[in-house]
Every structure is written in C-alpha cells, then in structure tokens.
Amino acid sequence: MVRVWIADITALLIEETYQAYYNKVPVWRKEKADKYVNKDDRARSIGAWTLWQMMQRELNVPEEAVFNLSHSGRYVLCACSDRTDAKVGCDVEMKGKLLMPVAERYFGKQECEQIRSGKDEKDRTDWFYRFWVLKESFMKATRRGMGLDMKTYTFAWDQDGVPYMSTQPEKYRDHYLCREYIPEQGDARIAVITTDPEIEGSLHEVRLI
C-alpha cells in the first residue's frame, strides 16, 4: 500500500528549529541543503527528508521501500509503497494564478477545454492545478521527468470523481492508480500516481515543531 504524508515546514524557518532537524539528516542531505541560498529552499530540503525519516520510523518502513518526495511553499510531501517493485510519483503545488499559456503548451486539448469550462476564474485555476500535479506525479513515477512529453498522457475523472489516465505513452502501459488530496488549509493541490494496487484514501498531515 502507498502511504501519503505531508508536513508544514514553517517552523523550520526559525534557525534554532532548522538546526535541530538539520543535525538529524544524513551528511549528503545537509550538503544538498547547504547549496541553497534561500532559507525557504533549505527548510524544504531538510523538511522533506525529515518527513521521510519520520515515515520510516513510525511505519517501520524498510530502507529499500519505494518513495517519492515533493515540496512547494510551506509544504513537503512524501509518498511511499511497501512494494519494492512499485512505481510511485507525487506532487504538491501551492495554488497561485491560472497559467493558461502553460496549459496550452503542455496539456492535451481536452484538458485545456476542461480548464476553460470552469464556472469562474477560481474554478478554472483549481482545474489547472489538478491537472498539473497529476502530470508532474506521472513524470516522477516513470523517472523520466521533463524528458516525457506531457501531451502524450492525459487525465479525466470517472463518475465517482476519481482521476484516471485517459491516454498513456506507449512505453508506459502499466496500470497506474491516481489519487488527489487537499491539505486541511485548502491552499494546495496534491496528487499521487502509482502502480501499487493500493493507496490510502486519506492524507496524513504532520506539523514539524
């Protein structure tokens, strides 16, 4: 099963708290965080790995477990599967402005039509971010990243409101399970995509202090 955890890293913007968590991560992660000039980026880097360590400890997750990390704004996200043969990708994005030129460049025709059909600007913006996190999650699950043409795979929703892949690239024909989540504050969109046949329905929210 895939477990999905998210944490608010606001507390890590306080130097004393940041150092406390920084001291608990591996050396290579410290070095990665040290390369960032912006303290918010450093906090996200340390916070993401801290969240993964917490999942390992509290869920007794083995070192070889498949996992994926994401971060945006004040959030860090981790999705992990207990199946070593599974593919897992996740993405969290703070909701901002509607970026229709981005959608027109990277999304499929029907996806763009779905965005434009929104009842108002807020609804259209929400549709944009729903598609964006799904597309990012799939890229990460395949490990191709931006090397994968985003127009070669599209998403739709079934009658129960659950997202699914309506088209897939020829090289990635596995069955992918898709899930959406919204944090309690409602200020971000989250998606997880996996070949694991099971994924928890709820988002586990953690506050780092």
Rank of each mutant, 00 (worst) to 15 (best):
C178I: 08
K119E: 13
Q114S: 13
G147T: 06
I46P: 03
S45G: 10
V88P: 01
V88Q: 01
A156D: 15
S117D: 12
K97D: 14
Y21G: 05
I182M: 12
W157Y: 15
S45I: 04
K171G: 14
I6Y: 07
Q53Y: 02
R173W: 09
Y21E: 13
S45T: 07
E104S: 07
K122C: 11
K109F: 12
R42L: 04
S117V: 09
Y181H: 11
R29A: 05
R144D: 06
W5L: 08
G73S: 15
M146R: 05
M150D: 04
D123Y: 11
Y21K: 03
D91A: 04
L59Q: 04
Q19S: 14
G186N: 12
K35T: 06
E111W: 06
D196Q: 04
Y129F: 09
Q56F: 01
A11R: 11
F138S: 05
V66K: 00
R130H: 14
K140D: 07
T195V: 05
D196P: 01
T10S: 15
D174V: 13
K95R: 13
E15F: 06
M1C: 15
L98K: 05
D149N: 14
I193M: 04
W5Y: 15
Y21M: 08
A20I: 05
M55S: 05
Y36Q: 07
G161M: 07
L148E: 09
P62C: 04
F67E: 01
T50V: 10
S45R: 00
N60T: 01
H71L: 14
K119H: 14
P197S: 15
G145W: 02
D34V: 01
M139Y: 03
G118D: 06
H175I: 10
E15L: 12
D82C: 01
A86T: 01
V27F: 09
E184H: 10
K24G: 07
V133G: 11
K151W: 00
V192L: 10
Q114D: 14
T17H: 11
M54L: 15
F107T: 02
F67K: 01
T10Y: 12
Q53E: 11
D8H: 05
K35M: 09
Y164R: 10
F138V: 07
V25F: 03
A191K: 01
M54P: 09
L203P: 03
D149W: 04
Y129I: 05
I182G: 03
A79P: 03
D160G: 12
G73K: 10
I199L: 11
R116G: 04
L99Y: 09
Q114C: 11
F107A: 02
A141R: 00
Y22G: 00
P101R: 10
F138Y: 13
